[in-house]
Amino acid sequence: MNLQDFKFSRDKWQKEFTLALRQRVNDYFQTNNISKYANAAMVTKTVVLIGAFAALYAAIITGWVATPWLAILAWITLGIVTAGIGFSVMHDANHGAYSRNKYVNGVLGWVINLIGGFSVNWKIQHNTLHHSFTNVHGMDEDIDAGKLLRFSPEQEHLWFHRFQHLYAWFLYSLMTHMWITTKDFKQLFRYRNNGLLEQHSISFAGAFSHLLLVKVVYYAYLLVIPLVFSPFAWWVTLIGFLLMHSALGFLLGCVFQTAHVMESSHFPAADEDGNLEYNWAVHQLMTTTNYAPGNRLLSWFVGGLNYQVEHHLFPNICHIHYRKLSQIVSETAKEYNLPYKSLPTFREALRIHWRMLKTLGNGATVLPVAA
């Protein structure tokens, strides 16, 4: 099916919930006279993260680190900081949530190109497909990892999936290795073929030229320049670069998959006419899980993505506000007898995700949904 073939429910009760929730969130910002965009704390975080990235990069290419092992450690730390920039700065900007100024969002959103991705593809995959059709098989590419991983009960079950709860973590570490090599090119051709580029008024020729330029710049500054200027042997730089991406991919996989591939998650399927069971807002409640709401350090690093419910309901609001909004969302959901899924710790979220991978790997097609 195409995007336009799907129709969310128009159920009156769900519509009343959606309207009430939006009104209460709007009232929160108006009553407190605050902007839904970034505040001083968010700007400070942006400066800290980008500054840390620049400092680590400078240390690597100038030899400020004294030994090869410290250089490799600096590369791994660079991967962790890169994840923080992606979670916090780039993510909000590409949702138009960082600033009311579209040029600020454009510049900060373009940062994804400097950390291995491609902004054109990311916006289509994440903003359009994932946020519109969360956990819908065949539409949400976040639950489509090819044949190696089975993230959905509708996906074909293969014999080796019984081991996916063991090997998935290694595959997560390869995620951005795929970004910087083949994925972006395959994705761009796929979006051309299925009409998504045209729907977004994007020229394939222009996007392809842009993608080539992005990859050349990325490899030039993050691999070639360190190879040329680092005082250490070439293999130190190469190992460091590979480990940086392994750390980055592993963190991205753990943070995002624990929000949707969970025992409490629904995997809604449309009927033959494209009708979905829930309206868009309730769909997000049914398919999304929060975790570690009391862990402020984790929340700071992952850009509020431990509040995935709030992010999916209000992607155009800067994540710096999610902690406050979570009380409004949970209370409104309870009032309308709708689920609000939240786990106490990140460790618990990882444990349940592991168990869910095992369940899906054993071939389950009907899942026992936990509230």
Rank of each mutant, 00 (worst) to 15 (best):
T62W: 07
H353V: 03
A333L: 05
G146R: 04
A233W: 12
R355V: 04
F160C: 02
G117W: 05
K147G: 03
Q125P: 00
V111C: 01
G138M: 02
G249D: 13
V111W: 01
A270Y: 01
V43D: 05
L252M: 14
V107K: 04
L227T: 00
F53V: 12
L325C: 14
N306I: 12
W300L: 09
A270R: 01
Q23C: 10
H131E: 13
M1T: 04
H131I: 13
N127H: 03
V261P: 14
V107E: 00
V89Y: 05
W354I: 00
G96I: 07
I61H: 04
S299R: 14
V65P: 03
S9N: 02
Y340D: 07
L188F: 01
M356E: 12
L174V: 03
I202M: 11
E348H: 11
H95W: 08
H165T: 00
V282L: 09
F170I: 15
W122G: 10
T176N: 14
S203N: 09
G117D: 07
F256S: 05
S230R: 00
A333E: 08
V89N: 10
V309R: 09
Q199A: 14
S173M: 12
L108S: 07
Q23D: 13
F118C: 02
M178F: 10
V217M: 11
L325A: 13
H200T: 04
L188A: 02
I352Y: 02
G294R: 15
P231R: 10
H177C: 02
N26M: 05
A59R: 06
Q327M: 11
G240C: 02
G249M: 11
K186Y: 00
K123W: 05
K341N: 06
W13K: 13
G51K: 12
V111N: 00
L325E: 14
L78H: 08
N135F: 02
E272W: 00
K215N: 01
T365M: 11
L325S: 13
W354Y: 12
V136H: 06
F204C: 08
W75K: 03
R355S: 11
Q14S: 14
Y57Q: 09
H177E: 04
A145I: 01
F6V: 13
C254L: 15
H137G: 00
V217F: 10
S230M: 01
L238P: 03
E156K: 07
N135I: 01
L238Q: 02
V228H: 00
N295D: 15
G117M: 07
S230Y: 01
V255F: 07
H91V: 01
F241T: 05
P68I: 05
I34S: 11
A38G: 02
N279P: 11
W179I: 08
P68L: 04
K341H: 09
L108E: 06
I34C: 14
Y322M: 09
I317Y: 08
N295M: 09
Y221G: 01
A233T: 13
V216G: 03
W169I: 10
F8T: 12
G96S: 06
F241W: 08
T176V: 12
T176Q: 13
L56R: 08
F267V: 10
